[in-house]
Design a protein around this nucleic acid. Structure first.
Length: 269
DNA sequence: ATGGTAGGAAACCTA
C-alpha cells in the first residue's frame, strides 16, 4: 500500500540548522517536510543544500529576521496562490501546496501561529491580541472552506490544548500557550474545519506528549517541562488512514538543537 | 518570585 510521510519542524533558522536536516532525513525519511521559523529572506534560502537532501521540490516564504515557512518535498506539488494575508500583516506564517500524492492530490497547509508574548491579556499585550485574532481568522477560514477531503494541516500552532500537552496543567493555566482562552480558540479552529488531531490519534490523552522544551533550562531533559506546540491535523477522510507517527524527541539533544522537535505522521493512502 | 537561553539584526527585537 502506498504511504505518505509528512513531517513538521520549527527549525528556528534554516541557515544555521541546515546540517540537522540530514539527521532528520536519516531518522524519519519524510516525503514532505514543513518548516517554520526559517528566519530567512527568499533570496537567501539554501535551495542547493536542501535539494542535496533529496527534496527536489521546494516552496518557501520568508522575510528578514522573523517568521518564515517552507515546504520541502520529494513529491511534485503545485504552490497554492491566493491564500489569506493573515491579520493583514504581510507576515510569512502560512504556505500551502497541492501535493501530487498517491491516489490524487493532497492539500497541505503549513502554519506558524504567533507566539503571543508573555502577558495573557488582549488589552495589555498586542502580541496576545494578534495571536487570538490570527486563530479566529484561521477558524473562520476553516469554516468557510469546509471539511475538504484529502487535507492536512501542520505547523507550530503555539498552543498546547490538552491537559497532558503540558508538564503541569495547573501551573500552566496562566501561561501563554495553555490559557483557557487560547485552548478554546484552538479547539474552535479544529471544530470549524472538522480537523482530526493526528498525533493524539496515536497517543492517548492521558499520556504526556511534548514537542517543545525551553532553551531556558539548565537541563531540558531532566526538568522535562515540555509543551505540545506542534501539531498535525488531517481531514475526516484521512483519519482512518493514519498508520504511524513519530515525535523525534532525541532531536532536542542534537548539537545546536532547535527548541522544537520534528513530528511526523504516515498515511496509508 | 525571578531569570534562565537562543537567533538575527544591528545596538534590541523575537521566541
Amino acid at each position: 500500500m502506498p504511504t505518505l510521510r509528512i513531517a513538521t519542524w520549527n527549525i528556528n533558522s534554516v541557515r544555521l540548522r541546515r546540517p540537522l536536516l540530514g539527521e532528520l532525513v536519516k531518522a524519519l525519511e519524510p516525503d514532505v517536510l514543513c518548516l517554520q521559523e526559517t528566519k530567512c529572506p527568499d533570496e537567501l534560502f539554501p535551495l542547493e543544500d536542501i535539494r542535496a537532501f533529496g527534496f527536489a521540490h521546494i516552496a518557501h516564504r520568508g522575510m528578514k529576521g522573523y517568521n518564515g515557512v517552507a515546504i520541502l518535498s520529494r513529491l511534485p506539488f503545485e504552490l497554492r496562490e491566493g491564500e489569506p494575508d493573515w491579520c493583514g500583516r504581510g507576515d510569512c506564517r502560512h504556505i500551502s501546496v497541492a501535493l501530487d500524492a498517491p491516489g490524487g492530490p493532497v492539500e497541505l497547509h503549513d502554519f506558524y501561529v504567533p507566539a503571543g508574548g508573555d502577558l495573557p491579556d488582549r488589552e495589555a499585550n498586542p502580541k496576545f491580541a494578534h495571536k487570538l485574532d490570527f486563530v479566529a481568522e484561521a477558524a473562520a477560514w476553516s469554516k468557510a472552506r469546509g471539511a475538504k477531503p484529502r487535507s492536512v494541516l501542520v505547523g507550530d500552532l503555539n498552543i498546547a490544548p490538552l491537559e497532558h500537552d503540558v508538564w503541569s496543567h495547573r501551573q500552566m493555566l496562566g501561561v501563554v500557550s495553555h490559557t483557557p482562552v487560547e485552548v478554546e480558540a484552538l479547539t474552535g479552529w479544529m471544530r470549524a474545519g472538522e480537523w482530526h488531531d493526528a498525533l493524539r490519534h496515536f497517543v492517548p490523552a492521558e499520556e504526556k506528549l511534548y514537542t517543545w522544551w525551553s532553551y531556558r533550562a539548565r537541563d531540558w531533559e531532566a526538568a522535562d517541562r515540555g509543551r505540545r506546540l506542534d501539531h498535525v491535523w488531517v481531514s475526516p477522510d484521512l483519519a482512518g488512514k493514519l498508520a504511524r507517527h513519530v515525535v523525534l524527541k532525541p532531536a532536542r539533544g542534537w548539537p545546536q538543537a532547535s527548541d522544537h522537535v520534528p513530528a511526523m505522521v504516515e498515511l496509508a493512502l
